[in-house]
């Protein structure tokens, strides 16, 4: 479903990703963990070309992403949930959800709204359809953002630290939605520090450090007997 081949990314003289090779199967739930600055966000942002790799290749559903085709491939195959939610503040919740289906997928308005309400039900926010995002709490905004991602009916949803900007008491409501989502046949790539979530949902966990994939394996492997010293040190700090 997603394939990264020898992906390198540099920002100026800063070499952020170093020969990252990674494959994600259809329907797989992949969790990427690692210390800040390890390149995990950049990795997931390369998957929809928000960052274009300096070298290397990214394939989505067998199609090689290029600067030219990225808009079309991204439109048809991927959606993203951001740390800062990035809802459109000048639109109501319902308009946020229906904008892309109406303008990009050319879905008739009433159908798009039906779809939006279906996903608002899933995230438990049907009654907020007509309000503006700024009136919602962080957790509610992130649930709307997840509903927006679902409305695109993308096969791949990328989560870039979806709970890192939330108040501690609203983190769980977002995680609950993501856990619910993980039962669907959607390919999920999640960058997170929520180890409980990783343990519960992930098919596979990747640990990144200094722009490289240092270790990968099942959640059991990770949380019971990680092999790399660096992974152990990181996990012991974060699992305290």
């Amino acid at each position: 479903m997603i394939k990264l081949v020898n992906v390198n990314k540099s920002f100026g003289s800063l070499h952020v990703l170093k020969d990252v090779n990674l494959e994600v199967a259809e329907g797989e739930k992949l969790v990427i963990i690692g210390p800040s600055g390890s390149g995990k966000s950049t990795t997931v942002r390369c998957m929809n070309f928000l960052e274009e790799p300096t070298s290397g290749e990214v394939y989505i559903d067998g199609v090689k992403l290029t600067h030219k085709n990225k808009t079309e491939v991204v439109r048809n195959s991927t959606a993203m949930v951001f740390q800062q939610f990035n809802l459109y503040p000048h639109m109501t919740v319902l308009e946020n959800l229906t904008l892309a289906p109406i303008k990009l997928q050319k879905v008739p308005k009433h159908e798009a709204e039906e779809l939006a309400f279906k996903y608002l039900d899933i995230v438990g926010l049907r009654e907020k359809a007509s309000v503006y995002p700024s009136t919602l709490s962080g957790g509610q905004q992130q649930r709307v953002a997840i509903a927006r991602a679902l409305c695109s009916r993308a096969k791949i949803i990328l989560f870039d630290e979806p709970t890192s900007a939330l108040d501690p008491e609203t983190v769980q409501e977002v995680l609950d939605v993501m856990i619910k989502l993980s039962q669907e046949n959607i390919t999920m790539v999640v960058v997170t520090h929520e180890m409980g979530f990783a343990r519960q949902v992930a098919d596979r966990v990747i640990f990144m450090d200094d722009g490289r994939i240092l270790e990968e394996g099942s959640p059991e492997h990770f949380f019971e007997n990680p092999t790399e010293e660096r992974t152990k040190a990181f996990l012991s700090k974060i699992l305290k």
């Binding site: 991204v74 959606a79 993203m80 695109s152």
Partner: peptide
């Protein structure tokens, strides 16, 4: 973030 959200949805 607004530009990125739009790009992630596939808007030109």
């Amino acid at each position: 973030g607004q530009f990125e959200a739009a790009a992630s949805q596939g808007f030109t």
